[in-house]
Computed example of a mutant assay.
Amino acid sequence: MDIQKIRMATSEELQIAKIRRRKTNEQIAEASGLSLSTVNRLIAGTRTADLHQIAVIADALGLDRDELTFRIFETAAANVSASRENNGSDEFDLLAESEIPAADAYGLAAQRATRKVDAEPHAE
């Protein structure tokens, strides 16, 4: 998966969370301990977030870390699928570690999602 898709998915999810929580970039920076410049670039999609940054921003926004990480990768995967439908591309390697610095986060989010699915009663 293209790192740009991860970056844009992170930006999209942070913007949504920021609006829902009615927080400014300044408030997020202060609560997370990240610089305002870093927060601005992460939310604008001009910087790639690492796991620490995602975690402290999730905490600053009062969000579950795993849930935010899962939403980021879910959004990125949806963007890749939409892109594939539009241009017929076969490229869909979600766990290409050379392109996704947060591949471990995806693993955690995927495990969490699997636990949720396994815990739900199955209709027979």
Rank of each mutant, 00 (worst) to 15 (best):
S32Q: 02
I43E: 06
A49L: 03
D50N: 15
K5R: 12
A105P: 00
E13Q: 15
E26Q: 12
T10H: 02
A58W: 01
A55E: 12
T24D: 08
T69N: 10
T48Q: 05
L95N: 08
G33I: 10
S35Y: 06
F92L: 10
Q15I: 10
K18Q: 15
I28H: 07
I100N: 08
K116G: 01
D50V: 08
A77Y: 05
A49P: 00
E99C: 03
N40Y: 05
A44E: 13
D104T: 12
N40Q: 15
L61R: 02
S98N: 13
A31K: 12
G62W: 01
D2H: 11
G33H: 07
I19F: 10
E30T: 08
N25Y: 04
I72A: 01
I6V: 14
D2R: 12
I54M: 14
T48L: 09
P101N: 15
M8V: 05
T10S: 13
R7H: 02
Y106L: 15
Y106R: 05
L95S: 06
D104P: 00
V117S: 06
T114H: 11
E97I: 13
I28K: 03
D2I: 06
K116V: 08
L36M: 08
R115N: 11
L68W: 03
K116N: 10
D66I: 15
E12R: 10
D118E: 12
I19W: 04
A103G: 04
T46I: 12
E91C: 02
T114N: 09
L42F: 10
T10M: 07
E67L: 13
Q111M: 13
I100P: 00
V56R: 00
D93V: 13
R115P: 02
D104K: 12
A49V: 05
A76H: 03
L51A: 09
T38L: 11
Y106T: 01
A76Y: 01
R7C: 06
K18Y: 01
M8P: 00
R21T: 11
L42M: 10
R21D: 03
R41T: 08
E12Y: 11
A55F: 03
V56A: 02
